[in-house]
Design a protein around this nucleic acid. Structure first.
Lengths: 243, 243
DNA sequence: CGATCCGTTGAATTACGTCAATAGACGTGG
DNA sequence: CCACGTCTATTGACGTAATTCAACGGATCG
């Protein structure tokens, strides 16, 4: 669920230490605070459209969004799953390259593009943090290319679940295994994996029948043995993704 | 062919205005020049290995390299094609995330990692240029995810050829069409497209039989009508990749 | 209670992969 | 100069994983 209590001070902010502001000192944070605005949008809302103007640089404070492209004939590919601390928009460009859609209620911390570009010039810690985050995103995008290009449907689904657990602090390892909430519909998962919804569903069923996952509800799964699932994802602990 | 004449001054450098140094003024360039070293490696040489130390940040001055990952069972996916001005390595990390292999003779302009990190701190124009390049790479990687995830074998091959023409200044539009030299073997192309070598070959043959490409030699093709090929790549001029 | 949305399951189809043979390009050596 | 081996690319026959088409089931909501 999205936080409904307004966030006023950066010091309270859930992404204070992981977003683009992570390296800022108190003084720099004040500069950011003076130009930031918050915006909360409901699930399903569009946060950007490929080819359209995008005049803000926004960090996700809470919620989840997908970045995707849709071809003329309707085929869609998600190119990134955006979680808290991830950003939308880029300095130096006023037109979005991809569609961005809120998958849950999303709260954004936004900067007007021109103001953010000035910030980048004047605030070295923002620039260095943005570079680090972008390099990490690039590695992640390349890791995902391996999944899209070379993995089987089964491996894709397993890899998706494993990556979601790794990224989501929300994933709670408990006595009975790891509980994971899926912020995506089956269709959104299929678009992320380059599969059809039917194939995705079949793989969920197959993993369930083999005891690798339990389906608590459509959006909630339990992973009894995380390492076993990671092996299905072709991730045997060494040699795999660094991220 | 790789340039065999040694490059001494940055002012002569073929990537002076497109590499990480592009925004530097004369003074900054001198700082770079004082710590740069050149290295030329033959085709087939390894420039980095996933999981191994990588103590330099290098720009490709001439030649072509591929960045890839190989899974334990031998499946390989290329995640990036590196052309002149592209970089290898990243600040803040001493271990390579991917394999990098020279596809032709390659000349590199290298900086020792620690020295480069200092440069990033002291030379704002290097930092801003690196950020811009990394953001562009990220967009390109996401564009490629659409190709890998949602395109047919035919579209993949067409998209590959189109992207090569767009990136390679070497591609010369002439009276008889556009001439394109392929710096990759069929196998390397297949690894880049997430296909087998056989399927890749069949698509080349199909495009040839339909007159969309001519095979001058295995490594040289002529594209009589570039726009026609771009349509096969699902790129109808609007709505497609921004990059 | 029907309508709608979302996910699952089944059957038929197909695009791509696998296995295998062949052909061309190139170099070496007799 | 031709025989031979190697390497790369092409082509054919066949198998299969994933898609497509279609029906169905379980929620949720008016």
């Amino acid at each position: 669920m999205a936080k409904l209590t307004p966030i006023i001070a950066c010091s309270n902010c859930p992404i204070r230490h992981s977003a683009v502001c992570a390296e800022c000192d108190a003084e720099e944070l004040e500069k950011l605070a003076s130009i930031k605005t918050y915006k909360t949008v409901p699930a399903g809302a569009s946060l950007a459209e490929a080819g359209e103007r995008l005049d803000h640089f926004s960090s996700i404070v809470s919620g989840c969004a997908s970045m995707s492209r849709t071809l003329e004939d309707g085929r869609r590919q998600t190119v990134g799953l955006l979680l808290p601390s991830d950003y939308i928009g880029r300095p130096g460009r006023s037109v979005a390259a991809f569609d961005v859609e809120a998958l849950s209620d999303v709260t954004l911390c936004r900067f007007e593009r021109g103001a953010f570009e000035k910030l980048l010039r004047d605030t070295p810690h923002v620039a260095t943090r943005l570079l680090t985050m972008t390099l990490d995103e690039l590695d992640a995008a390349r890791d995902w290319a391996v999944v899209l290009g070379r993995m089987t449907a089964r491996e894709k689904v397993a890899a998706f679940l494993v990556s979601l657990v790794r990224r989501q602090a929300v994933a709670l390892p408990s006595a009975t295994g790891t509980d994971l909430h899926l912020p995506l519909s089956r269709e959104a998962i299929a678009d992320h994996l380059g599969l059809t919804i039917e194939t995705t569903s079949r793989q969920f069923t197959a993993l369930r029948k083999e005891g690798l996952i339990e389906l608590v509800s459509n959006r909630d799964i339990r992973i009894p043995d995380f390492d076993a699932l990671a092996i299905e994802a072709g991730d045997d602990g060494d040699g795999g993704p660094i991220v």
